[in-house]
């Protein structure tokens, strides 16, 4: 009886206040979609970090026949130069920084290249000796790139030591900026949502002041009086969260997993299943939203 009554009161409140409730749903939907997108961006950044940081950290490119760098004036790297570099990698001095390394021959480089750019016509015309052979070095601490750079840059047969993280860092910082912007927009929208929910509850309380007046009069409990209004805000926010969850999943599925992943097959993208982890977060935010705005309102407009 009590539960059924609260439900019916909530529904009648929503019906009376439909346009406000719809606006709450939409604002919550948009703001939480921003939150979801920012979440997807962060997940993608982490995914790529994990993917790339394991693979590339520092590449020591060795001279080949087509190298133009000053250090390669002596032509392609010789066997003894290569051994010297390898010995240096193995040395006591380097072991403090070098976690492991792998040698990548020109043939392997070609294979990888053709793999990664399979969709480009150019890939077919590239030959192995146009590509440099390299040592792929992963560091104990990725931040210590400079030390390794100094250690190997001067060595004969080394064309260039490149920190491949740097390329990624700029991409990551771009993605970070994008997620900060998304979060900033989300925060503004969330504030709007809180105020809008508060206004909705206030309007709803005003339009039902006769009922609540009588409820107070006959001694209805605080729960009985306030819960329908609270529920109205929660229901609207939850609907918004549900829509935002669908939108976030759709972005992950259709934009990232389907479209981006087919455009850039060599990059690791998050799957739409991973995006599902964001959904509880969105619902929790919606709940906090509704609770916060109810706190603002109920105490002032629905005193018992």
């Amino acid at each position: 009886m009590r539960f059924a009554f609260i439900v019916s009161e909530t529904l009648s409140g929503i019906r009376r206040n439909l346009s406000m409730v719809i606006s709450v749903v939409l604002v919550t939907f948009i703001s939480l979609t921003f939150v979801g997108s920012a979440g997807l961006l962060q997940m993608q950044i982490n995914q790529m970090k994990g993917y790339w940081y394991d693979r590339v950290e520092v590449a020591i490119f060795l001279c080949n026949d087509t190298s133009t760098a000053a250090s390669c004036a002596g032509g392609a790297v010789t066997d003894s130069q290569r051994e010297a570099i390898e010995a240096q990698l193995e040395s006591q001095q380097a072991s403090a920084y070098v976690e492991s390394y792998e040698h990548e021959s020109q043939d392997q480089a070609l294979e990888l290249f053709q793999d990664q750019y399979a969709n480009l016509d150019m890939a077919e015309s590239v030959t192995a000796d146009q590509l440099p052979e390299s040592f792929r070095v992963s560091l104990v601490n990725a931040e210590q790139y400079e030390v390794v750079n100094e250690m190997f840059s001067g060595m004969p047969g080394v064309e260039v030591v490149s920190d491949q993280r740097e390329l990624l860092e700029s991409l990551f910082s771009l993605m970070n900026i994008a997620s900060v912007i998304a979060i900033a927009l989300a925060v503004i929208m969330l504030i709007t949502a809180i105020l809008l929910i508060a206004t909705t509850i206030r309007l709803s309380a005003f339009s039902r002041r006769r009922e609540t007046g009588i409820m107070r009069l006959v001694g209805a409990s605080k729960t009985m009086i306030q819960l329908p209004f609270l529920a109205e805000g929660v229901v609207a926010a939850m609907l918004g969260a549900a829509m935002a969850s669908i939108a976030t999943w759709a972005i992950a599925k259709f934009f990232i997993a389907d479209w981006l992943a087919s455009e850039y097959p060599q990059t690791g993208f998050i799957s739409s299943t991973e995006a599902l982890w964001l959904i509880p977060l969105l619902f929790v935010i919606a709940l906090i939203l509704a609770a916060a705005s109810s706190m603002l309102t109920l105490r002032r407009y629905l005193k018992v």
Binding site: L217, V218, G219, A220, S221, K222, V304
Partner: peptide
């Protein structure tokens, strides 16, 4: 404040 409703149930 949560006992006030109980008081009011005693009053018409």
């Amino acid at each position: 404040s949560w006992r006030v409703p109980h008081l009011r149930r005693d009053l018409g």
